[in-house]
Every structure is written in C-alpha cells, then in structure tokens.
Write a protein that binds this DNA or RNA. Structure first.
Lengths: 111, 111
DNA sequence: TCAATACTGAAGTATTCACTTGACAATTAA
DNA sequence: TTAATTGTCAAGTGAATACTTCAGTATTGA
C-alpha cells in the first residue's frame, strides 16, 4: 500500500518459496543472469514442467520476473520478494539484537 | 564452521520454519518477551501439543531458544536463525541490486 | 496425599506439495 | 510443409505437513 511497485508481496509466500532447495537453486542460477525455462531445468534433473511450476511460485511472490517472447520464456531475478524479505528482517531486528545484548542468555545458548 | 556459536543452522530450515503463519505468530509474540508454551498457545486457537511441535521446529533452526525449569518451558527469541537469514540475504543482495539499477527492466516490472 | 497444572509422546488424519506422465499448442528451422 | 524446439495444461501419485486426540509424566499447590 505504500510501495512504488504495483505488486503486493506476501511474506508468507516468500518464505515458502525459499524453503524449497530447487527454488533456491533457481534463484541462485538467475543471480548470475537471465535464463530460459529449459536452460534452468537442465542442471536440476527434473522435468521442464516442474521448473515451470516452481517459476510460477517464484514469480507470484516477486522473487523472479519472467517474460515470454516467441516460444522462449526468459526468467530473471525479481526485486519485490527480496525487498519484502529484507523488510521483514528489519521489522524484527530490534528484538533479536536486544537478545544479543543480553550476554548471559547468549552464552547460555552457545551451551 | 566459522561461527562463534556452536549451532549450525540450515537456511532451508529457517525458510521452512518461517513459511508457516502460526510459527511467525510465535516469533512475533516472543519478540515482545519470553513466554511459556501454554501462554503461547492461548491466543492461537490450537492445542498445546501443536505449539510444542512448532517450537521444536523453531528451536532446531535457531529462531527460538527454550529452557525447561520445573514443569514450565520458557521460550524466547533465538539469534542464530535470524543471523543465518540475514547472511543469506547479504549473499544475494548484489544480484538484485544490480537488477534494480537497470531502470528499463525495473519499470517493466512495475507495469 | 490429592488434584490441578504444564508439558510430552505416540498415533492417526486431511491437506498440501513436489514431482511425474502424457497430450497438446505455438514458434522456429530445414 | 514438415519436423524439431519450447513451453503449457490436466490429472495423478507418494511423501511431507499441520494439526488432532488420547494417554501418560513431572511438578506444584492445597
């Protein structure tokens, strides 16, 4: 409601999307530059269909942006999902920094 | 292998843990201060057993730290999970900042 | 001692999830 | 036109997940 971007990203979806190893692998691959669906599928040992399903999830939460030109869908890193993620961390930072300051508890946790 | 803390936190588990709305609610509640298991369960409309199951997941990935004294298990925010999360974002920041710089693509995404 | 409190453990269930197969559509190349 | 490439759609499967209930175990208070 306050962002420049038109997409509303739910943090739940972002977390869920990144909870899957295959989807994180896709994000990692796209971090190095754009790629087609089949190019993404190649090193993953899963079908192109499965990759397309992952891409839909990644796109819905703003982690990936795709565009189809001709018969090729080109995928690249999105920004909204990452922004939402950083925002969530910022919103919670104070509580765990506060906890970090409490030395006894911290050492306790180290065991 | 390089952290001061003794816990190795898998980012997969952190993302998976935070992908659930109930677990995020628990984290939110604990951000305001420590609480017992039953105190956490009260506003959630689920059984104490379910909360205990969530707590185990949250503890395994370092988002929550718990300690049982007498018959009461006291839960508080952990730090390792949040650190792992921030680390993951830092590791990926360059790629999406690079993307943000590309104005045409960015505007394209707003659409 | 007796009962209430606070949690734990095992087992079951309904739903979600990551994947597959197989059939199809659209674009590009020969 | 024909054939290969690239992706999409629908439906199904097995495993994981978020719960539940029921039966227990400690701990605390009266």
């Amino acid at each position: 409601m306050s962002e420049g971007a038109g997409k509303e990203v739910s943090i739940k979806r972002v977390f869920h999307a990144l909870g899957d190893a295959t989807r994180r692998a896709i994000v990692d691959r796209l971090s190095e530059g754009p790629a087609s669906v089949s190019r993404l599928a190649a090193p993953l040992n899963i079908t192109v269909t499965a990759v397309a399903q992952h891409l839909q999830i990644l796109e819905e939460c703003g982690l990936v942006h795709t565009e189809k030109v001709g018969r090729v869908r080109t995928c690249r890193i999105g920004t909204a999902g990452f922004a939402a993620l950083q925002q969530w961390i910022n919103d919670h930072r104070s509580s765990w920094e506060r906890r970090l300051d409490r030395l006894e508890d911290f050492l306790d946790e180290e065991e």
